[in-house]
Design a protein around this nucleic acid. Structure first.
Lengths: 358, 358
DNA sequence: GGTTATAATGTAAGCGGTTACATGACGCCG
DNA sequence: CGGCGTCATGTAACCGCTTACATTATAACC
């Protein structure tokens, strides 16, 4: 009966540590030692145990390990709802590092069915995950009230005022500054902004960068040109419609605070018969894959890298109690033809505006 | 707080069932009943228990529940490496349904660091997940040898010959047939195919669909026009280079078996000064977001829906032991300008080639 | 009223590991 | 040769729940 004949009905019971212990003639503690690798076991005994385990096709029970050992080998990750497409890179980065370190990843998305607080509470349960990675969310405030004492939490791409949780972020301020400078160099002066939702960390940071750049360049900030969006493609299209319907003259350039909105806006502008960058220059943020296809000038956000760093921090925190140093990753301005000014554009040029640091 | 050696801070110990039991003056079993909801408890006692639990900020331990109750409320999902971007929709669908049903999702990606068999073995451990969702992979063969008796496994978008695991798939054959017919209608006769990796289920199915369509339309299949790719953007570009370097005349149309390859090919063709659809018509498969921006004719794969169905099946299997009926989801031909023929194209038209059914 | 079905709760034995502590074998030393 | 430190292994008490079974209170019936 060597081969895997189908056991009809009788659901084969999984062998336990004790089965292995019995078959190999050693105590259960020794078997545990062999499998956990946390204590020395003589080579001879180890071999006997492994043989028995193989014979029985034994696999340690994750649940029992988690309960007795207080380790789940699992990283929890919470993504915002608006993350479509965008989060995939972060997740890929997290998974990559987790896999290297022998961890699994529990990915959850805030959605209609579960709110962020619910999710956090759920994952905070003992024995669910060993650490929590939380992505940028609009309503970050509540997290600091969570009981987080027993579990490391790492914030990705946002900060919580008044909390000292480690944060891996990116240089949103520098990215936005660089973009404004670029648009300025292209000859654009009346620059409209399409921001993200109110209170969103990324959006606020980028807006700050814009203000700084405006100040330095001596451009007065026209509040009427600060449009509010929702980081979705549809909100970009809506903003375009609203603007056009208002009858105002188009600005020289529009800087959308993410690519999704820029794409929506681009589509809507073209539908209305306006050309980009002929009638108005356009720029986005994040440098998603589609930006390349649409020749959209953007800022490359290091999503994958953020995921990697966050996971690495989590693993170090769990295994060595090593406290991470908050860090802000570099971003890269990616110039394409959508932002060209009167003098013509230099498509494809790439510049790195920000140095990494604290 | 000297963070050197011993945890000097009073790391708050999580309250247990027994703490709640003591505080509320009922037995631990009753507290368990209140929280699991699996037995009747008088309204008065329930209230007392809930009050005590709230006072202590009690949250049940996931690990203990999993061990004692043999339920993890977790779905495992294994994605292939090539899935970039593409899997995100499937994951979203899975997560959506899982969330509705109170499940979490453990997402793992086959990568350099862990092979599929390793991953499966890992997730198959007792108490890790309650069911496994496995996506299309090139080397599906090994799965049927896994010891899967104690755990439901659902296959997404691929079948394993000789195994009776439930499969949620899509009508690849019909989709490919519809595409070939469309290209034929556009007047294209010399049609090249760029397939996926050898042995890949999707690729084989799509190829089958093409053969059928060719046969029905009376087009002889020219094996020299069947190119092999790897489902990556780069392999699409490479195929284009190879073809151009071969010096052969371009075919009327090229049908790439996924959008990623079509996008790579499109870029390479344009770089070489060939116009699409002017010099050669082009079509992809999957209808990824970028396809819309590139005006690429494609076939819309119901990725999100597949994820939803798979998760729904898993949940039903777990909670009600309801065996799912294998199912093949409809696909939709999405015509855009990249496939236009001599007569001109009807951009934007959408047709549904396949009826749903076994 | 006595008997019995029914509902609510308590008792305690697991679930399958980990790990503090005890034990015994061995080598080394004065 | 007795004492002692080391190392490999065994013993058994948890980890924090679930649940079969026992118990008691209450309702229902003849």
């Amino acid at each position: 009966m060597a081969d895997g004949t189908i056991t009809s009905g009788v659901s084969k019971v999984q062998p336990t540590l004790y089965d292995v212990s019995r078959l190999s003639g050693v105590s259960s503690a020794t078997v545990s030692r062999v499998f956990s690798g946390k204590a020395r076991v003589s080579e001879e005994v180890r071999k006997r145990v492994m043989d028995a385990a193989r014979q029985l096709a034994y696999e340690p029970s994750h649940a029992a390990r988690a309960l007795a050992g207080r380790r789940t080998q699992t990283l929890g990750a919470i993504f915002p709802e608006i993350a479509s497409g965008f989060y995939a890179d972060v997740l890929a980065g997290i998974d990559e590092v987790a896999a290297e370190s022998g961890f699994d990843v529990l990915a959850s998305f805030v959605g209609k069915r579960r709110s962020r607080p619910e999710l956090v509470k759920r994952l905070l349960r003992q024995g669910r995950v060993d650490a929590l990675l939380v992505l940028n969310l609009d309503d970050s405030q509540d997290l600091k009230h969570e009981s987080i004492d027993h579990l490391p939490i790492i914030l990705i791409d946002h900060e919580i005022p008044g909390s000292s949780l480690p944060v891996i972020g990116m240089d949103n301020v520098g990215g936005a500054e660089a973009m404004i400078e670029h648009l300025f160099e292209q000859g654009h002066r009346r620059i409209a902004l399409l921001t993200g939702p109110e209170g969103n960390f990324d959006s606020d940071q980028r807006l700050l960068g814009c203000r700084r750049a405006f100040a330095r360049l001596g451009i007065p900030l026209d509040e009427a040109l600060v449009l509010r969006g929702a980081f979705t493609q549809e909100s970009g299209a809506a903003a375009a419609r609203d603007y056009l319907e208002s009858g105002r003259a188009l600005p020289d350039a529009i800087f959308c605070f993410n690519d999704a909105m820029a794409i929506g806006m681009l589509a809507e502008l073209r539908r209305a018969g306006r050309s980009v960058p002929g009638d108005v220059a356009l720029a986005g943020y994040d440098n998603v894959e589609a930006a390349a296809h649409l020749s959209l000038t953007s800022v490359a956000s290091p999503m994958r890298l953020m995921g990697q760093v966050a996971a690495r921090w989590a693993v170090d925190l769990i295994t060595r109690n090593e406290r991470p140093v908050p860090h802000r990753l570099q971003v890269r301005l990616v110039v394409r033809s959508s932002s060209a000014g009167k003098h013509g554009s230099r498509g494809g040029a790439v510049r790195t505006p920000s140095a990494s640091g604290l």
